[in-house]
């Protein structure tokens, strides 16, 4: 019994000791889309400076925000990556938990590709085609202003100009930021093209969102998990299927898959950068300003990330598939980051 008490005392002492020790490594959480970029910067930072290499967890945008907004203190992360802007509800939660001062850093853009195997013809799609092919409810094909369950079986049913193959799209699950962005940019983009649905937005925003963002569940859209490499492999096996994934995966695998054009524009570096490719989204990270003083190297890390060598027109992040901000946007951003501009909503 004595020994047991002793052992307990030792383990409690050990734990207390752990708590008291400071942290000398930057802790970063968040989006799996920003992860490939943040990790490259972290590695460079670790090699160039004498600080430890930051630790980066890929938790998804939502999961990252939850950890980030849990409070201020060494056991909470210093930075969270996000493939979408912070939501009002998340911002409020941060404020409530004492995370008062946050700086928003937009690092660039990411394109979402709708691709198929090179063994088949390249698709020429519009956002409206994507909406009609993938939404759960679509406008009645007879022209009346009612919604029916998606009756379309082949691409030709959707748009006579498209090939006569079964609609089969492999994409990310609802937990993914890529899926959110696809629903918002591609599906809602196509949904808006139908005038009477667009009119709904003013009357009933919720119903409008439900129509535009809900993906059909009858097997035409196949959730392929968060692993984009898997989608590429499956496309290779099945030349009739289309896949939805980030631009960097398209770039790495363009000997196997090709990106469909959306409204005549293909997913290419230049078209995403100048905004003419319609399905692209901004990428962010958020900084907890209260930690800048207590964690060594924070300022330097921010400097490295926003430097011209990293996110500039010829920076190393571009090699990894990031689409850069414009010159003036970058200059403004650098000023904001270095002065710790507080985000308010």
């Amino acid at each position: 019994m004595k020994k047991l008490v002793l052992a307990t005392a030792i383990s409690v002492g050990l734990v207390a000791n752990v708590q008291a020790a400071g942290r000398d490594t930057i802790s970063i959480v968040g989006s799996s889309t920003v992860y490939p970029f943040a990790t490259v910067v972290a590695e460079k930072f670790g090699k160039k400076t004498s600080y430890n290499t930051p630790k980066i967890e890929s938790t998804g945008s939502g999961g990252g925000m939850k950890l980030f907004c849990a409070g201020v203190g060494l056991d909470t992360p210093d930075i969270t990556n996000a493939s979408r802007a912070i939501k009002k509800s998340e911002y409020d939660k941060c404020q409530k938990n004492g995370v008062k001062s946050i700086t928003e850093v937009q690092i660039g853009y990411d394109g979402i590709a709708v691709a198929n195997s090179k063994k088949s013809e390249r698709f020429n799609l519009t956002r409206k085609d994507l909406f009609l092919a993938l939404a759960d409810k679509v406008p009645n094909p007879d022209g009346s202003q009612t919604l029916v369950h998606n009756p379309y079986k082949t691409w030709k049913d959707v748009n006579p100009a498209l090939p006569n193959t079964k609609i089969e799209v492999l994409g990310p699950p609802p937990t993914s930021g890529t899926r959110d962005a696809f629903a918002e940019l591609a599906m809602e983009g196509g949904c808006k093209k139908v005038d009477w649905i667009k009119a709904m937005k003013k009357k009933d925003k919720k119903a409008y969102k439900a129509v535009c963002h809900t993906v059909r569940e009858d097997g035409a859209y196949i959730e392929a998990g968060e692993n984009d490499n898997l989608i590429v492999q499956k496309l290779e096996k099945n030349p009739n299927a289309l896949g939805i994934f980030g631009f960097s995966f398209l770039e790495q695998n363009d000997d196997k898959v090709q990106g469909s054009t959306i409204e005549g524009t293909g997913p290419e570096f230049e078209t995403i950068a100048d905004g003419s490719y319609p399905i692209s989204r901004p990428l962010f990270f958020y900084v907890k300003n209260a930690h800048i003083k207590s964690i060594p190297g924070m300022k330097k890390y921010l400097q490295e990330f926003t430097s011209e060598a990293a996110m500039g027109d010829e920076g190393y992040l571009l090699d990894k598939g990031l689409i850069p901000l414009s010159q003036s946007e970058r200059a403004a951003l650098r000023k904001d980051v270095m002065s710790g501009k507080k985000l308010s909503m």
């Binding site: 490594t25 992860y35 290499t53 630790k55 967890e57 890929s58």
Partner: peptide, 17 residues
């Protein structure tokens, strides 16, 4: 518990990431 992460420094003990 946060062990699925990008960690470059080789851990040298029980408390390193």
């Amino acid at each position: 518990i946060g062990m699925v992460a990008f960690i470059v420094d080789v851990p040298g003990g029980f408390l390193d990431s």
